[in-house]
């Protein structure tokens, strides 16, 4: 037998503990990164690491959430996130139902709360919601008895994206603490940037956000921890200097109602990630992107497809993170916990 065979019992995979005892998730909803504690974030990441193995089996399914119903309520276009939640639910044996705006009563004028109340009457256990308005998941959490998972609300938060980004980083770096992370692009319209700044700040990483001044909201440096771990710059080379992780954001044309920069070509010239620019970052820096990527706008193909790109790893991490989140929020809360013995 190999020594590493018993390592997980004593080493890296030990569940996160707080003052000696294992933590429990103790939250019914995942509305954002902001309300989460460091222990809760670690528990989600550790659970996701354990669940990842299921997706490598010949039979990619466990019976854990048998009989539970997960509704994916998507008011905005999404392929990656919706599919990821659907696969996550199915790998845990939950029933997943997808509702998108084009096929629902929303086009007939039903309000969000009325839609939710009607879904509620069908007794779902979890509602995963994506909405163009910040706070929509919070409103549902106040009116529904189902667990609510935020899959992106306006320019506010996208917690599972930040969690899967953290899981992906940890595949390549030993810890988040002290890591230098550059987040570059359309900061103003990006819920991914907000959730990532909050999560990375809580976990002790040093984040620099960067974009054209028109896409950098005033006061953004106050997001997350108040200890000044977040820096803001409009010079890309400053952001890349010594970075361990480079996160590129998509230019969200669909959210931009006015012209924030003169042209796509000019944007790429100043804020597009190229192999030459990457020389400022650490030699082993990884490149991330929440997708979908706009080749030649924020990222050059040579970089997106290059050896340091972990973009497809992020997609794989996404399923594991969403399995972990569904598993942790869903658990029954009717009786006190009892260890299964014997």
């Amino acid at each position: 037998m190999s020594p590493e065979a018993i390592a997980p019992e004593s080493g890296a995979s030990t569940p996160p503990t707080s003052r000696g005892g294992p933590v429990s998730f103790n939250a019914k909803h995942l509305l954002g990164i902001e309300p989460l504690s460091v222990d809760q974030i670690q528990l989600i990441l550790e659970t996701a690491k354990s669940l990842r193995e299921i997706s490598t089996r010949p039979i990619k399914k466990v019976p854990t959430l048998r009989g539970k119903t997960v509704i994916n309520l998507f008011f905005e276009a999404s392929t990656r996130t919706r599919t990821s939640f659907e696969i996550a639910a199915k790998r845990l044996s939950a029933d997943a139902i997808n509702i998108s705006t084009s096929s629902s009563s929303i086009v007939k004028g039903e309000t969000l709360v009325d839609t939710a109340r009607n879904l509620e009457a069908m007794a779902p256990d979890v509602i995963v919601i994506r909405h163009s308005s910040a706070g929509a998941p919070h409103q549902l959490a106040g009116t529904c008895s189902a667990c609510i998972v935020n899959a992106g609300d306006g320019a506010h938060e996208h917690p599972t994206q930040a969690l899967l980004d953290a899981l992906t980083i940890l595949d390549h770096k030993p810890t988040l603490k002290g890591l230098r992370v550059a987040i570059i692009g359309d900061i103003a319209h990006s819920r991914v940037a907000r959730s990532n700044c909050l999560l990375l700040g809580k976990m002790g990483a040093r984040v620099t956000v960067c974009g054209p001044p028109t896409l950098l909201p005033v006061g953004f440096d106050r997001i997350g921890s108040a200890d000044g771990s977040l820096a803001v710059t409009d010079r890309m080379d400053d952001a890349l200097e010594g970075a361990d992780v480079v996160m590129m954001l998509r230019i969200q044309m669909e959210r931009q109602r006015e012209a924030f920069f003169p042209s796509v070509r000019e944007y790429f010239r100043y804020y597009g990630l190229t192999a030459r620019r990457m020389r400022s970052a650490k030699p082993d820096a990884i490149i991330m992107h929440p997708g979908p990527i706009n080749r030649g706008v924020e990222i050059a193909s040579e970089v997106a497809d290059g050896p340091y790109s972990v973009i497809l790893g992020q997609v794989a991490s996404g399923v594991a993170i969403r399995m972990a989140v569904l598993y942790l929020v869903i658990g029954g809360r009717e009786h006190p916990s009892r260890a299964l013995e014997g």
Binding site: P15, S24, L43, S50, H335, L340
Partner: peptide
């Protein structure tokens, strides 16, 4: 007993 326990047990990996 997953539907009756108060908090989900911590899942570790199977190898």
């Amino acid at each position: 007993d997953l539907s009756t326990v108060a908090t989900q047990p911590i899942v570790q990996s199977s190898e």
